[in-house]
């Protein structure tokens, strides 16, 4: 229910879920999808465009536009912004020089250690175990891990990915203060 005191952002959260905390989680999920979408589209200002898309959605809601599926609507807005601002370079097989892989700077290692320390112990152990090993031993270890946690491989992959995303978000935030 819209009230006069509600800001567009509040209206968006309310539209996502009546529970403010859950709404926040969903908001972050949508934002991550938007961010990744723009990154995968090679948009240099992915962060800005992700927030811009969310602002547009919130404003539409505030203006009274009915949005049945916020995720689907978010994709349409994101696609419009991408078309509006950028043209995705077509992926070709032309031989372009392979870029060099940047080495992680010492501060990043420090941030990694710090952020690993912030993770709950089960999450820290899971992610370290998940990425441990090479080749077939790694696959075997993951199957063993999924068995121990009594979850599917896909669920394990998603769980590990979420922990990693959390970890990377923490590292990037830490690097801004280094």
């Amino acid at each position: 229910m819209q009230t006069e005191s509600q800001t567009p952002f509040d209206m968006l959260l309310a539209r996502l879920d009546p529970d403010r905390e859950r709404a926040g989680e969903l908001y972050e999920e949508i934002r991550l999808k938007l961010l990744k979408f723009f990154i995968w589209k090679n948009c240099p200002d992915a962060d800005f465009h992700a927030d811009d898309a969310l602002d547009r959605i919130a404003r539409k809601l505030h203006e009274g536009t009915e949005i049945k599926n916020v995720n689907a609507y978010a994709y349409q807005v994101a696609r419009f912004i991408a078309l509006e601002q950028y043209r995705q370079p077509s992926a070709t097989d032309e031989q372009i020089p392979e870029p060099s892989i940047p080495e992680p700077a010492p501060p990043r290692m420090h941030c990694l250690e710090q952020c690993l320390g912030f993770l709950p112990v089960p999450d820290r152990e899971l992610i370290l175990s998940y990425y441990e090993g090479e080749g077939s031993s790694k696959i075997a270890q993951r199957k063993d891990l999924a068995r121990q946690l009594q979850i599917s491989m896909t669920a394990l992959k998603i769980r590990a990915c979420r922990i990693r995303t959390k970890l990377e978000t923490c590292i990037n935030g830490c690097m801004e203060h280094e």
């Binding site: 080495e103 290692m109 250690e113 690993l116």
Partner: peptide
């Protein structure tokens, strides 16, 4: 990419 490298180094 750098985060992935850092994680790999750590692991």
């Amino acid at each position: 990419l750098e985060n992935a490298q850092a994680l790999r180094l750590h692991i």
